[in-house]
Design a protein around this nucleic acid. Structure first.
Lengths: 194, 194
DNA sequence: AAATGACTAAATTGGTCAAACGGTCAGATT
DNA sequence: AATCTGACCGTTTGACCAATTTAGTCATTT
């Protein structure tokens, strides 16, 4: 009873602290203080700081998957679902400080734990995409292709259009991104024989 | 006479040093030593270290453009030329230590001058691509599209397939990259109505 | 039995100072 | 006289160390 309540409090405190200050700047002392528990209590639930962080990242990835799943509607086609799911996933990452802070920390301090954590997030997204592409292929909605490479290419292209483009130009709206995505990846640049 | 010879020697020494050690670790003393001139002599040709670096990068970009131009053959179509030119450009970057060392330096030390230099290289490539795309569009070889965004997308996709993919998977061969590029960007994933 | 916080070894920080740096210029070299 | 040079100058850098902070433990309290 009390034990579970404490664990939840610790997780909530860690979540808040990692999202606000990143991995390195989050201290076990401060997590204990925010959670209103003794520091030793944290170590009854988590082996060490890395495992506590791992728990928070695991929850984040779980929620990310839920968001992606929630954006998919059977009645919509491959492309609309793909765009919808990807856009929500990237929006979710934007809305929640956690990954933004970790990206910042990697740039500023090169924290290895933050790098590994974001790599896992990317892997989860790639994994989700891969399954989605395989299904579409089996339903005959898209051409035969290697789902792994395709997932990789789609994600890279999406990140390029959403984040990288923004670095040096005016941001593209959701509709613009969808249109560009449709043009480049779905229809292709080739002039249709007409 | 002698003056020009000295300038050439300085440029050669700087080229070698920037490519071997990066921007920060290249000292004006060592450039003078390698070039066999007094340090003061460098400052009769270049205002400061940044301008010397700028000269080297300018030459590099000039050679990059020449390589790209040389890969284009009127008789080939848009796609073959695009792939050929891009592949040679990226190969050229791989062969010459300069940009590799600068990329490394950005990651390890975050040197601003190296960042700006590589941004200029990317801009030069984008500029070249943009013109190439505009021509193909005017000849009716590809669909109407914004050449700027298209150049950006093509470069990002290429870098993703050539470099990023290699970070976590077995490298793709030139033919594989060409095939993937053709599939994703030229034909699109959409199943052709047949 | 569960929770705690004082404790310890290890890591990180901030301050210091000698060494190294970019850039100059009076004098040497041609 | 024109060109080239390296000793020199003020500034920046990074190795070093003491002081602080941190992750993780465990004897004690609740």
């Amino acid at each position: 009873m009390m034990a579970i309540d404490r664990k939840v409090k610790i997780i909530e405190a860690a979540e808040q602290s990692f999202a606000s200050f990143g991995y390195k700047a989050t201290t076990m002392d401060s997590v204990a203080r925010i959670a209103n528990v003794g520091k030793g209590t944290i170590y009854t639930f988590f082996k060490n700081k890395e495992e506590l962080f791992s728990e928070i990242m695991g929850q984040f990835i779980y929620n990310l998957k839920k968001v992606a799943m929630g954006a998919i509607h059977e009645e919509d086609g491959f492309f609309n679902n793909l765009h919808g799911a990807l856009y929500r996933v990237l929006e979710f990452r934007k809305e929640h400080q956690l990954t933004i802070k970790l990206t910042q920390e990697i740039k500023e301090a090169g924290t290895v734990q933050a790098q590994e954590a974001l790599a896992k997030v990317e892997d989860a997204i790639l994994d989700f995409l891969q399954g989605f592409i395989r299904e579409a292929m089996e339903r005959g909605e898209i051409q035969t292709c290697d789902p792994k490479v395709t997932a990789f290419v789609i994600l890279k292209l999406y990140i390029a259009l959403v984040f990288d483009w923004e670095l040096r130009h005016a941001p593209l709206s959701s509709t613009e991104i969808a249109d560009l995505f449709e043009l480049y990846l779905l229809n292709g640049l080739k002039k249709n024989s007409d």
